[in-house]
Design a protein around this nucleic acid. Structure first.
Lengths: 219, 219
DNA sequence: TTTTTTATGTTAACATTGTTCACATAAAAA
DNA sequence: TTTTTATGTGAACAATGTTAACATAAAAAA
């Protein structure tokens, strides 16, 4: 769709596409306006006809990035055809997969560098609009149905999120060689998360890998 | 100690001191060589007589930062006069305190931006030289004494670290207003961590805040 | 159609960044 | 005293994000 003419056609979308392609491989810090202008065959200042600043382009990336992330992670969580525990398991696994497969985007969304921009976009308190909201809803669903123990759902949700965020961050930020064992780590972490959140003496049936272990009597 | 002379005296140390003072308030990203030269009353290129590059100065900061961090966090963990569980509790609390009180330094040490530099300095696998090593040693101590359940100590250590890192990161990277409730969150998280790691049917005596709860029969 | 307005793109320039190089100065070593 | 080494300066470099004046083409108005 690149027209060799004065007017490009849809530069704004192209800038974003190229930027997302870029952070698929390299960190957002290395993205320069020159890279964007070269890739589109335009001048270095052309971008300013579509974004007020580089930060505003990144703001748009964060916005779209969160939409992508929320879809990816909440999908399993909202699938009410499956047992709740399985939904937690699959959603948590999706979270980790997202972080691993889109590590630069994950850092852009959840890191500190553009925290000011992020805060303009999403207030996590506005729970309905974020993956956090879906998680909290699922926690409350589990508490209502008796699967999870009654406790402050906000606290429980943060702790679940915190575990996922912690493991994801350690993995993608290059601590040890734990990427190799990240699946096993997740299985183990999920057991821990579950045993902390779950009502005692509840048995589950599940086709997930953790299922077998859950049915085993605890030592 | 600032001498109004051609030769400064101890510029190298001064650069580092000023840099650490700087990240006590602002992010490492905002530290420029001009800030350092202005603060020392030298020229912008003076720093190159003491460091090969800005990155090398930051490398030194990371090195010293880890020493500080390890001391701060491992202190309680190594205090064998206290019950092991208390040592875990206090060390974890110290971890969180360090992250909160030195958030820019914490990000410098554990974030992704200078991961390449960090990896040159500390191999986390070289467990004896890092806070991770002290934690793993304590886990193994607990497993040997029967307080903690027998399991892969490496995995357990990562999961403990992961929880602390996740909560710390969410707090200092501005997610929600959880800083206000970070102490309560830590108490709750510690309970979870403990119940996942501990051998079943073990009772603890502790003067720590969590102690009361621990002695309560679990529902 | 013709004219005017608006949207979009270019070129040149700016200050700031990390960095390098030739030079200057003072302390240490010979 | 002379020489060498360590340390600091000033000018210059390319790359960065950004702005301003100008250019072109499409859309809107006449």
């Amino acid at each position: 769709m690149i027209k060799n003419e004065y007017h490009h056609g849809n530069l704004k979308d192209d800038f974003l596409t190229i930027a997302f392609d870029f952070i698929a491989k390299e960190d957002i810090e290395k993205l320069t306006l020159k890279i964007l202008s070269d890739a589109t065959g335009t001048s270095r200042s052309a971008i300013y006809r579509h974004f007020n600043s580089k930060d505003q382009l990144i703001e748009t990336m964060i916005q779209k990035g969160f939409e992508h992330f929320d879809d990816f992670v909440s999908l399993a969580l909202k699938d009410k055809n499956k047992p709740l525990i399985d939904r937690f398991y699959l959603s948590g696994k999706a979270y980790l997969e997202f972080a691993k497969q889109n590590s630069n985007l994950y850092r852009l969304l959840f890191g500190n560098k553009y925290a000011n921009i992020r805060e303009e976009i999403i207030s996590i308190k506005d729970v309905d609009c974020s993956g956090f909201g879906a998680l909290k809803a699922a926690v409350e669903e589990g508490q209502a149905s008796g699967i999870l123990k009654k406790e402050d759902s906000f606290y429980r949700t943060i702790l679940l999120w915190s575990s996922l965020h912690g493991l994801s961050s350690l993995i993608i930020d290059g601590f040890m060689d734990i990427e190799k064992i990240s699946d096993e780590l997740y299985e183990k972490m999920f057991q821990d998360m579950l045993s902390s959140a779950v009502a005692s003496k509840v048995k589950f049936l599940s086709s997930m890998p953790f299922g077998e272990t859950l049915l085993k009597p605890k030592i």
